[in-house]
C-alpha cells in the first residue's frame, strides 16, 4: 500500500486496472439495467416507479461514499501532507457532486407521483442538499487558490468540518420525523425489501460503485499528469529566464 503512494507506481497500477474495471462496469450496469427493467416486478405500493429506486438509492450511497473518501483523504493531506491524498480528494469531489445531483433529481422525480410533491424541507432531503452544496464549495475552493498546497490544506479543513453531515444524513430519518422513509436495506433486522427487488438494487449499486472507482482512478491519473505538466512548464519558464540573463 505504501509503495502505491508513489505517483509513478500508482499510474502504472491504474493503467493495468482500468481496462478490467471498464469491462466490469459495462457488465454490471448492463446486467443491472436488464434486471431493473425486465426482471424486477412492480412494487405493490409504488408500482412501476420502484424502478427509479434502482438508480436513486445507489446514487445516494455513492454521494455519501464520495464525501467519506474526501474526508479520509483530507486526513492524509493534513497529517502526512502527501500530494496523492490531495489528488484523491480533489478528483473525488466532482464525481461525488454528480452522484449527489443524480440522487436529488431522481428522488424528486420519484417524490412527485408518490408524495405528490417534488420537494419537501425534511431532514433527509435538506441534509442531502447541504452535501451537494458542500461538494460545490470544495470544488470552488480548489479552483480559487492557485497554490496547490494551500488549496489542498484549506479544502481538507472544509472537508473535515463538513464530514459531520454524513452521520446526519444517515441517521436523519431516525432522529427526526421525516417524510422520507427510514432505512430499509442496511438495518439491524435485515432488509425489508423483497429479494426480487433487492437483487437488481445490489447489482446496480455494485455497477455504480465500480463506475465511481473507474472515474476516480481516471480523474486521479489526469490530475497527476496536470501537476507534472505544471511543474515542467514552471521549469521551462525558469530556463527561459536564465537564458535571457
Amino acid at each position: 500500500m505504501i509503495s502505491l503512494a508513489n505517483p509513478t507506481r500508482f499510474l502504472g497500477l491504474v493503467d493495468k486496472v482500468l481496462p478490467w474495471l471498464s469491462a466490469l462496469v459495462v457488465i454490471l450496469l448492463g446486467t443491472g439495467l436488464y434486471l431493473s427493467f425486465f426482471v424486477a416486478p412492480p412494487d405493490y405500493q409504488q408500482g412501476e416507479t420502484v424502478r427509479i429506486m434502482f438508480i436513486h438509492v445507489p446514487a445516494a450511497w455513492l454521494a455519501m461514499f464520495g464525501y467519506t473518501v474526501i474526508a479520509i483523504a483530507a486526513l492524509g493531506t493534513l497529517i502526512w501532507r502527501h500530494p496523492l491524498a490531495d489528488v484523491a480528494a480533489k478528483t473525488a469531489a466532482p464525481i461525488g457532486a454528480t452522484f449527489t445531483f443524480v440522487a436529488l433529481v431522481t428522488g424528486s422525480l420519484w417524490g412527485k407521483p408518490m408524495w405528490g410533491t417534488y420537494w419537501v424541507w425534511d431532514a433527509r432531503l435538506t441534509s442531502m442538499l447541504v452535501l451537494f452544496l458542500l461538494y460545490l464549495g470544495l470544488i470552488a475552493l480548489w479552483q480559487s487558490i492557485d497554490e496547490l498546497g494551500r488549496a489542498g490544506r484549506a479544502a481538507a479543513i472544509l472537508a473535515l468540518v463538513g464530514a459531520i453531515n454524513i452521520p446526519i444524513i444517515k441517521f436523519s430519518v431516525d432522529w427526526w420525523n421525516t417524510l422520507h422513509q427510514p432505512a430499509s436495506v442496511f438495518r439491524t433486522g435485515g432488509p425489508t425489501i423483497d429479494p426480487a427487488l433487492l437483487t437488481p438494487l445490489f447489482v446496480m449499486a455494485a455497477g455504480f460503485t465500480a463506475l465511481f472507482v473507474l472515474l476516480h482512478l481516471m480523474a486521479m491519473r489526469a490530475e497527476i499528469l496536470r501537476r507534472r505538466v505544471r511543474a515542467l512548464q514552471q521549469t521551462q519558464v525558469e530556463r527561459a529566464a536564465l537564458a535571457e540573463a
Binding site: 427509479i52 438508480i55 446514487a59 454528480t98 443524480v102 433529481v105 422525480l109 407521483p113
Partner: peptide, 23 residues
C-alpha cells in the same frame, strides 16, 4: 409498459445517463 408514471421513470434514467455521460 411503465404505467402512468412512465415519464417520471424515463426522465430519471435520462438525467442519470446524461450526468454520467458528461462525467
Amino acid at each position: 409498459d411503465l404505467g402512468p408514471h412512465a415519464s417520471f421513470i424515463l426522465a430519471a434514467y435520462g438525467v442519470t445517463a446524461i450526468a454520467v455521460a458528461v462525467l
